[in-house]
Every structure is written in structure tokens, then in C-alpha cells.
């Protein structure tokens, strides 16, 4: 038996959340005395860095596959060939489309958004938008897991994977990709994968004031985010909205300026490792969820933080 990670490729290399899924698969396999393989489709160079996550073998389908139904067929064929007892994918746009289809094809139980390796036949995942965790049991012979980005991370494992060509009968593609629009500012890591996030809310008073937020983000190499009202009124794009009804994130650092810390906002960010809150109101609820706080005006504090961050990096 073995563990199979399915990994999506972007610009010729595995995505960050894909590498995390591979690392999760490799560590899970090691804990069970099994080996882990990864399935990729599209062009990659060498083993795509998958060996360095602990993957022993890469099954490489040279044709790029974008159709979720075809990906599921490809995965099923690989799982059968490898006699896989667990399939691991990232809990991002890729895993959310492909892993459930794989679970149906393999008649496997699926646990979505896991954060830790299974132990004692239970696997931990976040529920209630980060307000609680659940330990889940799977009763089927094969299990499918999707891994929350930035939860498990990539554990380095020195090594090189063997690469084997792989193909299967995929039928026709029914989902046709016709275009791509890069919404995020140049060079920013996509929000769900970002390790550093600078976020701002209604306290910034208008979209014209976001320069100071972007400056701090770029000085730190961080991605920008915002509260729901800010995206609802169109000050910032929808994909920056974090919270219970936006994106749930768990970066290493979340800096919130001019955000009150409503329960629905906290739900999406409360798993961040370090939270910094900047607010003029010392009674703002966000301070109760923060590690570091500054009571003060974001318009004065943010530029000073940017200057200090630049000095630190210099």
C-alpha cells in the first residue's frame, strides 16, 4: 500500500499548496511505513522539487489537464496502479474540484481541510470557520484528505524522486478554460497561500488611502487583505475579503489596521500564528484576539512601520 499526492502545476512548477500536500503525503506515508508518490500533469522540470518533500516517485502525465473530471480519472488510474490507501490534495481551488470526484470514484471517505497528520485513526480539521477543531474517523478502506494551506507546511526531506511517465484514458474535457486575469498586484503571493498579510478595514476611510497599506505590504513582502464592508463597497476587490464569509487564512503574521475585529472577521483570521492590531479605539474587540497591539492612528503608524521594515531588510 502507498500514499498518493495529487499536485497541481503552475508556470512549470508545483504550487505552494501542492508541495504542502506532497509533504503531508510523504510524512503520513513514513508514519505508516509506506512510500509516497505524487501525480502531476503538465510540464515540469526534473522532479519539480517533489523529492525534497519526501516523495519517492513522481507519476508524470505530460499532457496538461485542467478538467476536474479528467483529473479524477487520472488519479483513479494512478491510485489503482499504486494500490494507494490514501489520496492527498491541497484544500484550494484544485483540491476542492478534484478530490471530491476522486472520493466518489474510489468510494472513499473524504476529510476536507485537514491540518495535522492522522493519528490513532483520527484526523484533525478546522470547523466553524476556525472557531473549533474536529477529529474525524474514516470508515472506508481508502481515505481522501485535502490539506489546509499554510497548516502543515513543507517539511524538508533531502532527496530526489524518480520520475515515471504516466497516462490513462481520460475521455473528453468538458470544462474549457478560455482566459486568465491576474487579479492580485504584481508579485503578491495569492492570499490563501500567503505567510504574511497586511489587512485594513473601514478605519482607512476610503480607497484612495490604501497606498500606506500597500507600502507596508510590499516592504514586508506581504499580501494585502481587507474586511467585508471594504470589499462590499468596492474599495477593494472581492478576493481580498477575509472572514467567515470571505477567505479563511492562517498566515504566520496578520497585521490588521482600522478593523474593529467583529466575530465574523475573526473567524477567518484567528488561526494566524501572530496577530497585530492597530486601532484608534483601545476598546476595539480585535485587541482581545491579538498578540501585539498599538492604540493609534493607522495613518501615522503604518508609514512608520514601513520605514522600520525597510530599515530592517536593508
Amino acid at each position: 500500500m502507498s500514499v498518493l499526492a495529487i499536485v497541481s502545476i503552475k508556470n512549470g512548477a508545483p504550487t505552494k499548496s501542492g508541495l504542502e500536500a506532497a509533504s503531508y503525503a510523504a510524512n503520513y506515508a513514513a508514519s505508516q511505513g509506506m512510500t509516497a508518490s505524487a501525480l502531476v500533469a503538465g510540464e515540469i522540470s526534473g522532479d519539480g522539487g517533489l523529492g525534497a518533500t519526501g516523495i519517492a516517485k513522481v507519476l508524470h502525465c505530460t499532457e496538461p489537464v485542467t478538467d476536474s473530471g479528467q483529473w479524477a480519472k487520472l488519479t483513479e488510474a494512478a491510485a489503482v496502479q499504486l494500490n494507494a490507501s490514501a489520496i492527498v490534495a491541497s484544500h484550494d481551488h484544485f483540491g476542492r474540484a478534484v478530490a471530491p470526484r476522486v472520493a466518489v470514484r474510489l468510494k472513499a471517505g473524504l476529510v476536507a481541510g485537514v491540518t495535522e497528520l492522522p493519528s490513532n485513526d483520527l484526523v484533525r480539521k478546522n470547523v466553524f470557520s476556525g472557531k473549533a477543531v474536529a477529529d474525524v474517523a474514516v470508515s472506508t478502506a481508502i481515505a481522501v484528505y485535502t490539506v489546509t494551506p499554510n497548516a502543515f507546511g513543507v517539511k524538508d526531506a533531502p532527496g530526489q524522486a524518480t520520475v515515471e511517465p504516466f497516462s490513462a484514458d481520460l475521455g473528453i474535457a468538458r470544462e474549457k478554460v478560455t482566459g486568465f486575469d491576474s487579479a492580485s498586484a504584481d508579485g503578491q503571493v495569492p492570499l490563501p497561500e500567503a505567510e504574511l498579510v497586511v489587512s485594513a478595514g473601514r478605519g482607512l476611510k476610503g480607497p484612495e488611502n490604501w497606498g500606506i497599506v500597500e507600502d507596508l505590504a510590499s516592504a514586508l513582502g506581504a499580501t494585502t487583505a481587507c474586511s467585508r464592508p471594504v470589499s462590499d463597497i468596492g474599495w477593494r476587490p472581492h478576493h481580498e475579503h477575509v472572514g467567515q464569509t470571505g477567505i479563511t487564512i492562517r498566515p504566520n503574521l496578520y497585521i490588521a489596521a482600522g478593523i474593529s475585529g467583529a466575530i465574523q472577521h475573526l473567524a477567518g483570521v484567528n488561526q494566524s500564528k501572530t496577530i497585530v492590531v492597530i486601532n484608534t479605539d483601545p476598546e476595539a474587540p480585535f485587541f482581545k484576539a491579538a498578540d501585539y497591539g498599538i492604540v493609534g492612528d493607522a495613518f501615522e503608524i503604518l508609514p512608520k512601520l514601513t520605514a522600520a521594515a525597510k530599515e530592517l531588510k536593508a
Binding site: H91, P100, R101, L110, A112, T245
Partner: peptide
């Protein structure tokens, strides 16, 4: 917003 699974839709599609 309770179980945050996000997987029912694709399962329905596959079924």
C-alpha cells in the same frame, strides 16, 4: 460556514 468542507458540489458533479 459550519463544516467548511467545500466538497459536496464536486461530489454531486461526479455522481
Amino acid at each position: 460556514i459550519d463544516h467548511n468542507g467545500s466538497v459536496v458540489p464536486a461530489m454531486v458533479a461526479e455522481l
